[in-house]
Computed example of a mutant assay.
Amino acid sequence: MMMKSIKYICPFNVCLLVLLFVMYMASSCNKPGGDYNYVNTENTYSGTGYEYIAGKTGVYDSLVKAINRIPWLKDSLSSEATSLTLFAPSNASFRLIMSTLNIARTSAGKSLLYINDFDVPNLDSIISRYVIRGKISTSSIQFVDGLDLTSILNNYPMHGQRSFSEATGFQAGGPTNIIFSDTKKSPFIRDWIRTQTNVVNIVTKNGVVHSLQPEHELGFGEFISRFNK
């Protein structure tokens, strides 16, 4: 009987195949959006929180204009002696709420309003809720139930909770974000108004900046009632 010859496999080729496989797996686990261990990393900005948003032309122009009308808040965000966390609403959030406000005012025969027209006490009350005492990054929020936060004005109670996106094939394996809530001074979550970040952990000289998602309703449900008078 003629025996079939056995094909010889070079050990070097086997090692090469194993190495290529390991390299492929390693590269897959480093791709944002499709990996199991990807998290938003901290970025460092050389200036203050105010300087950071002021330098983001086309992103935070409306927020900067609002803060400029509140001198003490601008000074706090500009001071390197402070330690603050800013949950920054973008221009998109301002456009959304301003459009809704002015449609309501037009329907009622009232004049249009813009940021420079708002009374400062109400504007201060709303904008200051986005400025939190202390440096709060995603790593600061360790508890499942989140972390109680206090705003810079009158220690108004806010709340932060980590949120994990899903990566392909891995539950809660994608980027880490924060659910940011206005508690309305209520201990019950059902009473809270919540929103979420889309960029986190921008470390500045005097704190941290997180960017809120574009569809965030500025004022947590109070903007229209405060300014449509």
Rank of each mutant, 00 (worst) to 15 (best):
M1S: 08
K4T: 07
K4F: 07
S5E: 12
I6A: 13
K7G: 02
K7T: 03
N13L: 12
C15P: 04
V18S: 03
Y24C: 13
C29W: 13
G34A: 02
Y38G: 00
N40H: 11
N40E: 12
N40F: 09
E42N: 08
S46Q: 08
S46T: 15
G47P: 07
E51S: 10
I53T: 14
G55L: 00
V59Q: 03
Y60L: 08
L63H: 06
V64N: 14
I67K: 02
R69S: 06
R69M: 07
W72Y: 09
S79R: 08
R95G: 08
M98H: 01
M98E: 06
S99K: 09
I103K: 15
T106F: 10
I115E: 06
D117S: 11
L123A: 11
I126L: 10
R133A: 05
S137I: 13
S139P: 00
F143L: 15
I152A: 03
M158E: 14
S163Q: 14
A167E: 09
T168P: 03
I178N: 01
F180S: 03
S181L: 00
P187L: 05
D191H: 06
Q196V: 11
N201C: 03
I202W: 09
V203G: 01
N206K: 04
V208C: 14
L212N: 00
Q213L: 07
P214V: 03
E215L: 10
F220I: 01
E222G: 09
F223D: 02
